[in-house]
Design a protein around this nucleic acid. Structure first.
Length: 900
RNA sequence: AGGCACGUAUGUCAAUGGUAGACGGCUUCCCUUACAAGGAAGAGGUUGGGGGUUCGAAUCCCUCCGUGCCUACCA
């Protein structure tokens, strides 16, 4: 069996994925068991414009670990892939392309533009899906979906119509977040608030008085240009300073309008001058006040953020910032500019293009959320679903947000997306319908124009868990895979996406879309900064794959789980080394595998003979590992699962089991004993590979295929008939009967003895090649039996020429000594190497360590309240530990004496 | 401005109120025929500071310092 000395991930990565996909292993149909339990996940659809970043790689790894694990456990598993059409991003992307050709979307017209977007999508969209293949993601490509697919679009129209018919969707004039660059409305969630250093301008407004005396009221504002649209000034009703002015009329400068001064609770008397200029058409709060006080709405800024005709001849056509300068200048000339102060405030910007948002009044479609929201809150209250991991703080984040939910602006002034299924006749009557034909029938005319707006991208993504499964048809897939088992996603879309899916799922299917929600952590750069395109500090997962291999990267990502982690190549390197370790362990097993085969019966013995200790021990460790990994995955504790597997493989299997079996398996001569030992070795390896497979799919498959005796028999019964792959092998389940604490205790004693001798050798600089004599004194017969039974192995691993075991330690004066757990003692005679004073010091140091610990324990035990209040178990455990330490201390003392 | 988290070895992270660990890095020795991407041994911590609850605190409470995140309508 020729296999290279170092693991080269490339080859395995290239070979296996294509085969898995071609064999249909990813599709749920591979499972032939009609009674198989179901496990399903839908991918958070990445933007069609996106390319893979660490956040995706993290999510995908976790999803794949879960999916592969469940698949190996015999579940009928579906991990459904797909993409989001990503309205604004995609439109912007294609706009940019057009611009290079000197065109704008308006030159093409809507139809051609949309065609162009589709063309772009087919040619260069969805790179991310191919990148997912590299990750090893076991998604069912036969069920790939796109939010603009005909089926999903039908679901969107269906939902829109139903909600409209129930009165939950309505059209209305409202003040909205308007992006002057993208020319569309944005929801509150698509707006970034960024702190900004700005100015606060104090403007004086003259008050109209009966006798013509001059009185003024000062208002503070960050946006002087909006004063042209002021239709009132508000003060707090409790504010003494202005009490008598309430009801007064103000002569608004630069216009010939007169506006009222009124009182409203909203105004904070403490801030600024306590008087607020009110511009209902250009500020959301002012809009509300305007509604309350029946104020006029004067629109002075248009959709391009330029001043309108209403702003007056001096300002008409000016950019909003130019207008600001001019207003300030004119106030100054009129002597009405009181002062200007520096002021930091937060400003709303378009999440996509970073243009400052202009609040504008416009006609939009909205969705009332209260009713939908209440059902989601109920589900959380009654059933605790969805169950968030980590529970803190996300459960609260989710419910708090739902409680404060406002109506959702669902229309967008874009061309790329689901056009709103509403049609207007010439009189302006609206017909909401599933199709134009339906609308025509309802209207009784063919002269209809469809609403030009499209729906917010999230309107379609909220339906993802069921629209992808065929809804509104009652498909087999929908029945089988809905609700999905768990959702893996990032925390920034809990509101945008997670909550809306819950609401939509409850409303349209009557059931939660997923029972569990796992919120992934954030992968940060090494300075703790969020990775971003603009900062250019992102780490490309594909480069990491190239450098260290996919499997190693996946282990790091699985360990990240839900914590925010600074990316560190060292971690990947460490797991790359682990992959190499696995490779070489397997290499050793394969080099000694003639006459062996993977065989679950390899550990069975005839007529009740007991297996050697190390075999019973590794079985116990293996089963504990299976148990712990299973428990960790059930709690989504990926980090814990990885740690458990890492230590089992490296420490237990490589460092000890292989070493312990080495003599048995490397024999030149063919013998049944040798072959049996070899079979046990490859069988343990095979089990270990299965345990690792969900985390490290490539290397495990690569090695598994090379093991002697792997065949269909090893597959989970649900996959009988499939071509053998570790993907379909049964995930090892812990058998309680094989967990053997006594074997583990005995093995621990052997390991302890070997380690003590190695320690002595190292501290006394004994050359690795030099053999030493090992003398053991053990009072307990059981201990002596264990040591005797494993004498050869102890000799080999401690590089001893001889291991003699007696009831009492009898050693020459010139020996290095150590105390073992349980009170046994070991001595290594080292004539000529021992410096007596130094040796005494070494022993003294060790005794000191023990005494420190003993002092702690004694203090604890001498406290009467400890015995009284601590659980009895804890108390006796502490006593036990103390007496053990006492025994060892005494032994050390004696040893030191012997050296005098 | 409010709310919520977090602060553990030089770095990245673990630890149901019960002996603070892992990996990387570091030191010493070893290219021992699976693996130097390895082996053996070792150093390194008053768990951000201070206070409290408790028999017992990294863990629970208070406070200060520092760092993140989220939400929000102070013009």
């Amino acid at each position: 069996m020729e296999i290279p000395k170092t693991y080269d991930p490339r080859q395995a990565e290239q070979e296996h994925y294509a085969r898995w996909e071609a064999e249909g292993y990813f599709a749920p149909e591979i499972n032939r068991d009609p009674a198989a339990p179901i496990f399903s996940i839908v991918i958070p659809p990445p933007n069609v414009t996106g390319s893979l970043h660490m956040g995706h790689a993290l999510q995908h790894t976790l999803m794949d670990v879960m999916t592969r694990h469940k698949r190996m456990c015999g579940y009928r598993t579906l991990w459904l892939p797909g993409m989001d059409h990503a309205g604004i991003s995609t439109q912007l992307m294609v706009n940019r392309e057009l611009k290079k050709e000197g065109l704008s979307r308006h030159d093409l017209g809507r139809e051609k533009f949309v065609e162009r977007v589709w063309q772009w999508k087919h040619e260069s969209g969805g790179q991310i899906l191919n990148q997912m293949r590299r990750e090893g993601a076991s998604v069912d490509w036969s069920r790939e979906r796109f939010t603009m697919d005909e089926g999903l679009s039908r679901a969107v129209r269906e939902v829109f119509v139903r909600l409209y018919e129930e009165g939950l969707i309505y059209r209305g004039d409202r003040i909205v977040n308007w992006c002057p660059t993208d020319q569309t409305v944005l929801s509150d969630l698509e707006v970034d608030k960024t702190p900004q250093a700005g100015k606060l301008y104090y403007l004086q407004y003259p008050i109209k008085t009966a006798d013509g005396t001059e009185r003024r009221v000062t208002v503070a504002t960050t946006r002087p240009e909006t004063m042209l649209g002021d239709t009132g000034v508000a003060v707090n009703p409790k504010d003494e300073r202005y009490r008598e002015l309430v009801g007064a009329t103000i002569e608004l400068p630069l216009t010939n309008r007169e506006i009222p001064l009124f009182a409203d609770e909203y105004v904070d008397a403490e801030f600024g001058t306590g008087a607020v200029k009110v511009t209902p058409a250009h500020d959301p709060n002012d809009y509300e006040m305007g509604v309350r006080h029946n104020l006029q709405q004067v629109v002075v800024i248009d959709q391009h953020a330029r001043m309108t005709e209403e702003a007056g001849a001096d300002f008409f056509g000016l950019d909003r910032y130019k207008a600001r300068e001019l207003v300030v200048q004119k106030f100054e000339e009129l002597g009405l500019l009181e002062k200007v102060s520096d002021y930091e405030f937060s400003i709303s910007k378009c999440e996509r293009c970073k243009t400052v948002i202009e609040p504008l009044i416009s006609t939009q479609w909205f969705c009332r959320m209260t009713e939908l929201r209440d059902r989601a809150l109920e589900l959380m209250r009654d059933k605790g679903e969805p169950r968030f991991t980590p529970e803190v703080p996300y459960t609260k984040v989710y419910t708090d947000w739902l409680e404060n939910l406002r109506d959702w602006t669902i229309s967008r002034q874009l061309w790329w997306g689901h056009q709103i299924p509403a049609w207007y006749d010439e009189q302006g009557n609206v017909y909401v319908a599933r199709s134009e034909e339906e609308a025509r029938t309802a209207a009784g005319t063919a002269e209809l124009k469809q609403d030009p707006d499209v729906l917010d991208t999230w309107f379609s993504s909220q339906l993802w868990p069921f629209s992808t499964l065929g809804w509104p048809d009652e498909t087999e897939d929908l029945k089988t895979f809905y609700p999905t088992s768990v959702l893996f996603t990032a925390r920034d879309i809990i509101f945008l996406w997670v909550s809306r899916m819950v609401m939509a799922g409850l409303r349209f299917i009557g059931e939660t879309p997923f029972h569990d929600v796992f919120i992934t952590g954030t992968v940060l750069d090494k300075h703790g900064q969020r990775m971003s395109k603009t900062k250019l500090n992102g780490i490309d997962p594909l480069e990491v794959f190239d450098k260290y291999g996919v499997d190693a990267t996946r282990l790091v990502l699985a360990s990240v789980g839900s914590t925010d982690t600074r990316w560190n190549d060292n971690q990947v390197e460490s797991y790359r080394n682990f992959a190499n370790k696995i490779w070489n362990a397997a290499r050793f097993c394969l080099m000694n595998s003639d006459g062996a085969s993977v065989n679950p019966d390899a550990f069975k013995t005839e007529n009740g003979t007991e297996l050697p200790l190390h075999d019973r021990w590794i079985l116990s460790r293996l089963n504990k590992t299976a148990r712990d990994v299973d428990a960790a995955l059930a709690r989504y504790q990926f980090h814990e699962a990885v740690q458990t597997l890492y230590h089992f493989f490296w420490d237990d299997f490589c460092d000890w089991y292989i070493e312990l079996t080495k003599a048995d398996v490397t024999g030149e001569e063919v013998s049944p004993e040798r072959d049996a030992a070899r079979s046990r070795l490859v069988t343990v390896l095979e089990q270990a590979l299965r345990l690792l497979h969900p985390f490290m799919p490539y290397i495990t498959e690569e090695l598994w295929q090379r093991l002697p005796g792997v065949d269909e028999q090893l597959l989970h019964s649900a996959y009988k008939g499939a071509r053998p792959s570790i993907m379909l092998a049964a995930y090892p389940r812990a058998e309680a009967a094989l967990i053997d604490e006594r074997a583990e205790d005995k093995m621990a004693a052997v390991i302890d003895l070997i380690s003590r001798v190695r320690n002595i050798r190292s501290e006394l600089n004994v050359k690795p090649g030099d053999r030493v004599r090992v003398l053991v004194g053990a009072g307990e017969e059981r201990a002596r039996e264990v040591f005797s039974a494993n004498r050869d192995q102890i000799a080999r691993l401690a590089r001893a020429s001889e291991v003699s075991i007696g009831e009492r330690l009898e050693a020459p004066r010139a020996s290095a000594r150590a105390v073992l757990g349980g009170g046994a003692e070991v001595a290594v005679p080292l004539e000529g190497l021992i410096d007596f004073a130094q040796e005494r010091e070494r022993l003294a140091r060790e005794r000191e360590k023990l005494q420190k610990e003993a002092a702690k324990l004694e203090a604890q035990l001498s406290n009467p309240q400890f015995a009284e209040r601590a659980p009895a178990e804890k108390v006796s455990e502490t006593r036990q530990r103390l007496s053990d330490i006492a025994q060892r201390t005494a032994a050390l003392q004696q040893m030191a004496e012997a050296l005098k």
